[in-house]
């Protein structure tokens, strides 16, 4: 009874529960009186008028809402200006592209060891040129008559 009487008054009981309650109230005068009294209490409560907020209430709420700090995410600064976002994206792309180009054109740097090794490989050329050109004894020789003979003589002298 206790748990159902208010739900009965509010018409919030299921049909089967309501029928059961009707049957009980018909047979129990104490509960019937109690149910009627509760209904009267509910009606009396309904007599109190509603209180309207003062006009200043809305003004104060709006003022406080307006004074609230604006919460923004890290990316929020970009939201109001899509142009800035676009320009920043284009700049980033351009920088990436320039970097890629520079890397493709610039020859790979050579370490000192690699440079020495390269020079050693070319030393025969230097010998062919410098050593032979400045070899004093060879200068005293008469100029070769034929290229082939000159070549053979040179080999023999060496």
């Amino acid at each position: 009874m206790e748990s159902r009487i208010l739900a009965y008054m509010d018409s919030r009981l299921k049909d089967s529960e309501r029928a059961e309650m009707d049957k009980h109230l018909a047979a129990c005068p104490v509960c019937r009186v109690r149910a009627n009294e509760f209904r009267s209490v509910s009606d009396l409560l309904g007599e109190l008028p509603m209180v309207e907020p003062t006009p200043a209430f809305d003004v104060r709420v709006r003022a406080r809402v307006a004074a609230e700090p604006v919460k923004q995410s890290w990316w929020a600064w970009m939201r109001p200006s899509p142009r800035i976002a676009f320009a920043a994206s284009m700049l980033l792309l351009a920088m990436l592209w320039m970097g890629y180009r520079k890397e493709a054109v610039t020859p790979l740097p050579i370490s000192p060891e690699e440079a020495d090794a390269s020079m050693m490989q070319d030393i025969s050329v230097m010998e062919d040129h410098d050593t032979l050109a400045n070899f004093e004894p060879l200068k005293e020789l008469p100029p070769p008559v034929e290229a082939t003979a000159d070549s053979d003589d040179t080999d023999q002298q060496m």
Binding site: E2, S3, I5, L6, A7, N36, E37, F38, S40, V41, S42, D43, L44, L45
Partner: peptide
């Protein structure tokens, strides 16, 4: 269920407090 019990007790108290008005309505 605790709420229903709470409401029942509240209405009981209101019934007693408002007895003169309730009786007049009756």
């Amino acid at each position: 269920s605790a709420l229903k019990s709470l409401l029942f007790r509240a209405y009981e108290m209101l019934r007693v407090e408002l007895a003169p008005l309730v009786a007049r309505r009756g």
